[in-house]
Computed example of a mutant assay.
Amino acid sequence: MPAQTIAQTWLARIRELALPRPIRLMNVCGGHERSISFSGIRGALPPGIEIIPGPGCPVCVCPEEDLYEAIRLSLEEDVVLVAFGDMLRVPANVPKGEPRSLEQARAAGADVRPVASPQEAASIARAEPDKPVVFFVAGFETTTAPVAAMLAEGVPDNLLILLAARLTWPAVAMLLDSGEAAFDALIAPGHVATVMGPEEWSFVVERHRMPAAIAGFTPESLLAATYSVLRQTIEDRPFLDNCYPELVRPGGNPTARRWLSEVMQVEDANWRGIGIIPDSGFALRPAWQHLDARRVFPAPEDTRRRAGEMPPGCDCASVVLGRIFPDQCRLYGRACTPRNPIGPCMVSDEGACRIWWSSGLREARSA
């Protein structure tokens, strides 16, 4: 059956459901949000069903102080600074007139280069043997596993890692444990479950009796997951449904998990605008800490006035936590646009504000 027909069938089944009340679903993944927005799923659903974008953008939650450290290293040390492309435009809080992003640092003379993969970072290090090459790594499990594999297989001695990687599920756990979660069911990220296994999301059902389904990135998979959690809600029978069986298997990807376990350890970590979330960050294990850029280039004490915060007026933290929609941010479509991003959610292709803007929603919601 063609994909479009499958999607239409799921949508028809959703429209036949008798909902007991308005239901709010949170999707965790930036890729999910992009598919939902660009395929028109949100507008096609019956009234009473809301889909809320959640904390699925690693660029958006990368600590501001880590970004500032990357900018500082690129400008003050004789290094090549490499990072995934989205990170180059994320703004840090610096005094007026100073470079506020890696892109601006490059314009000021720093050797900053975008990369698309860990292997590209290693290749640059091999091509520049007389210089430290600092790989600024922000990402979730799917990004961190290839970095761990690269380190396990061996890298040039001059390749250093500035790590700002996070696990996905602890942010959702924090929201649910706080008792302030503004959603009734969860659509969990299929790519993370492919690596880590669906079991990581069982706490949503077991601890909180909340319906949950793992989805892929096509409209038909997302609509299947939506139908599943709505049925679970109506029947008061929450369980973890795998609506991405093509790739998601029990236990996940054992090779990727082995690399992560061998190279990385998990510790408490800061999320930009949110704060410390327990057991939510990756760090290098002792055997690889000689490659830690923070140890090789210790940072001076940070005395910036807004160190670690979101920019003034930016509501990205509330967007990431699903407390407001992107077009409810005070800066959305006014001071903050993709051409001039104020907050990180307007920078990345996985940021909800950038996705909503790119899908055609260009004006802020009226108060």
Rank of each mutant, 00 (worst) to 15 (best):
T5W: 00
Q8G: 07
R13A: 13
L19P: 01
G31T: 15
F38Q: 08
I41H: 06
G43S: 12
G43R: 08
L45H: 09
L45K: 13
L45D: 14
C57G: 08
P58G: 11
I71S: 04
I71M: 09
L73P: 11
S74T: 00
E76I: 01
D78F: 00
L81H: 00
A83P: 11
P91G: 02
P95W: 03
P99T: 00
S101W: 00
L102N: 06
A108W: 01
A108K: 12
A121S: 05
P129A: 09
G139T: 05
L159E: 08
A164C: 03
A165L: 03
R166M: 14
A182C: 01
L186W: 02
G197I: 02
V205G: 02
M210E: 02
T226G: 07
T226H: 05
R231E: 10
R231H: 01
D236W: 03
F239N: 13
L247Y: 09
P254N: 13
D268K: 05
F282H: 06
H290C: 06
H290W: 03
H290K: 11
R294L: 06
V296Y: 09
V296R: 15
T303C: 00
C314I: 06
V320T: 14
L321V: 06
G322P: 05
R323N: 11
F325Q: 10
C329F: 14
A335M: 07
P338H: 04
R339Q: 14
R339Y: 04
P344G: 00
D349A: 11
G351F: 12
G351C: 01
R362L: 15
A364I: 05
S366R: 15
